[in-house]
Nucleic acid binder design. Structure first.
Length: 354
DNA sequence: AATAAGGGCAACCGCGACTGT
DNA sequence: GACAGTCGCGGTTGCCCTTAT
């Protein structure tokens, strides 16, 4: 498609931003919101392209950015999410509050990737080099399941990220439009993924049911929420005159409607409005016995989960499952534990590494 | 002290996705 | 359905600073 490059206009400045330019951009966005990035530079009196302005804002000037050293927890989260999602930095960034995708990407490339390589772990597959060579059926099955899990989680993260972005943006703009009102920045974002089991009719075996993923945005502050059916672009374009928006408490839910053995529909629903959005995605329907998100986010409980078959099953969610299912579940868990353990116990000891 | 090499990070570039006409 | 406009993402580049020689 004939898309003209946005930065090829003569006279537009490139390269590092000066404090004066930062000030102009900051002042303009605080006053008006960013609106259309394309037209922002002209309105703000900047000799930059819109893209450059957007980048500067999202990666540097935004008020909710945390700078400085990454914590051990953040590093572990990045490693685990990268193992799941690959180089999907924006998705990873949604789980690291106040960190930008660019910052995470840079940190990965300059620190974490090298660290994993030093430890003999392939930063792409997150497997020990020895392990990569072996290809037992169990492992390939494991990999296939993880791939499905990743796909599903990936779709969920995307939807989640979108909601978070939209709500944050609206919240920010709302605050700017209501400067006299008390500034509130408490944005609670609760998410969970539940993989439940149900008895299999006839056999009495436990069968894993499609998961339910719930995202709840509950805020006590007045927040403008528009139906997701309205395109993002329009909301951005019209964000300067959204006076008509009513103030409603936001409650957004994801639910997963089940489905066939291989697909689920991720349904995004908001009760106060008459809209619905559905995402179809492949879903693992077997072999997962616990909250996936909490697993990958390094919940301390998971860090101490038993790692051998001889130990008691940790969760009631797998109680009653056949041994193969249990082993399978354990395999998945062990995979993540092994990542954590490898990171935690590097040859020269983790203290030096982290 | 001078300089080369390496590391870290901000910014740029190109592409795909999404939406409106 | 084709096209155009815009945005966001991921890969890459290039500059600046630090470290090693």
């Amino acid at each position: 498609m004939g898309r003209s490059p946005c930065c090829d206009k003569a006279g537009l400045k490139k390269g590092p931003w000066t404090p004066e330019e930062d000030q102009k951009l900051l002042a303009y966005i605080e006053e008006h919101g960013h609106g259309s990035w394309r037209s922002l530079p002209e309105k703000a009196g900047l000799q930059r392209c819109g893209k450059s302005c957007r980048l500067r804002w999202t990666n540097y000037l935004r008020p909710d950015i945390k700078r400085g050293k990454f914590t051990v927890q953040e590093e572990q989260t990045i490693i685990q999410l990268h193992a799941l999602l690959g180089n999907r930095w924006s998705a990873i960034a949604t789980h690291l509050p106040k960190r930008t995708d660019n910052e995470i990407k840079n940190y990965w490339n300059t620190h974490l990737k090298k660290r994993l390589l030093k430890m003999g772990i392939d930063p792409v597959t997150h497997k020990h080099k020895n392990e990569t060579l072996s290809s037992s059926t169990g492992q390939s099955k494991n990999a296939a399941t993880l791939s499905h899990m990743a796909q599903w989680e990936s779709a969920r993260l995307e939807a989640e990220a979108r909601l978070a972005r939209e709500s944050k943006l609206l919240h920010y703009q709302n605050n700017n439009l209501n400067k006299s009102a008390p500034q509130q920045h408490c944005f609670t974002h609760k998410t969970s993924t539940i993989w439940s089991t149900k008895p299999n009719e006839g056999t009495g075996d436990q069968q894993l049911e499609s998961p339910t993923s719930t995202v709840t945005f509950s805020e006590n502050l007045p927040l403008m929420i528009m139906p997701l059916g309205i395109p993002t672009d329009n909301r951005n374009r019209n964000n300067n005159n959204n006076n008509e928006s009513s103030e409603i408490p936001a409650r957004i839910e994801f639910a997963v409607s089940s489905s066939t053995s291989s697909d689920v529909s991720l349904v995004v629903k908001e009760h106060e409005h008459d809209w619905i959005r559905q995402i179809n995605c492949p879903c693992p329907t077997e072999g997962i016995g616990e909250g996936f998100t909490s697993l990958l986010l390094g919940d301390p409980i998971n860090r101490s989960l038993p790692t051998g078959k001889n130990e008691a099953p940790p969760s009631s969610s797998v109680a009653g499952a056949g041994e193969s299912e249990f082993n399978y579940y354990e395999d998945n868990k062990n995979y993540w534990n092994s990542i954590l353990n490898l990171v935690d116990s590097s040859p020269s000891d983790s203290q030096a590494m982290f």
